[in-house]
């Protein structure tokens, strides 16, 4: 049984080559070897959504695959999305609306929001709730998260100059 294998992954735009144990999950690899601790682990069985990352542009659970499986793929984490300002408006809306408390679920929530908001159209509140159905949050009760995503969807759809301010905050 081989103790470690070499993998090549593009993570947040950078080519990464590392030796990993085959049993190391992508989540453990990102958090441990690459110190990308913005990806969180809440259940290690694909239920809570805290570990979501982008794999070749699609949102997946990094706890539900081994790093070895990701060799040859592109992975993007919350750190990468933040640094290339891909979700700055979502982060701002979450901040203004206080759509997070402890913050542990937040990177996963943002991944789901990013995927949903990358699709055309303005989702209904029910569609937003449906999209969030695999993201557990124990703190907020979800409504603020739905509000924040809805605000971004409307702002992105609205012509420039007519952006909504989030729910009176800071007024």
């Amino acid at each position: 049984m081989s103790n470690s294998i070499n993998i090549n992954v593009t993570v947040n735009g950078e080519a990464v080559s590392r030796n990993v144990a085959p049993r190391e999950t992508l989540a453990d690899f990102l958090r441990g070897s690459l110190e990308l601790t913005g990806t969180h682990m809440g259940c290690e069985m694909g239920v809570c959504g805290a570990c979501l990352v982008l794999l070749d542009g699609r949102v997946v659970h990094s706890c539900l695959m081994f790093a070895a499986q990701a060799s040859g793929s592109e992975v993007e984490t919350i750190e990468g999305l933040t640094e290339r300002a891909a979700i700055a408006d979502i982060q701002e809306a979450f901040h203004q609306r206080n759509a997070l408390q402890c913050g542990f679920c937040t990177p996963g929530m943002l991944m789901t929001a990013h995927a949903l908001l990358s699709q055309p159209g303005v989702p209904t509140r029910d569609e937003i709730r449906d999209a969030l159905s695999g993201n557990y949050c124990r703190c907020t009760g979800y409504e603020s998260i739905v509000d924040a995503i809805e605000t971004v969807a409307r702002n992105r759809a609205a012509p420039a100059g007519s952006k909504n301010v989030v729910a009176e905050v800071g007024a």
């Binding site: 601790t37 969180h40 913050g103 800071g170």
Partner: peptide, 17 residues
């Protein structure tokens, strides 16, 4: 109603748990 200054780093994946 003011937002939380310390929430920004959590939103950027910079929380330290």
């Amino acid at each position: 109603s003011v937002p939380r200054p310390n929430a920004k780093r959590l939103l950027a994946g910079r929380g330290r748990y």
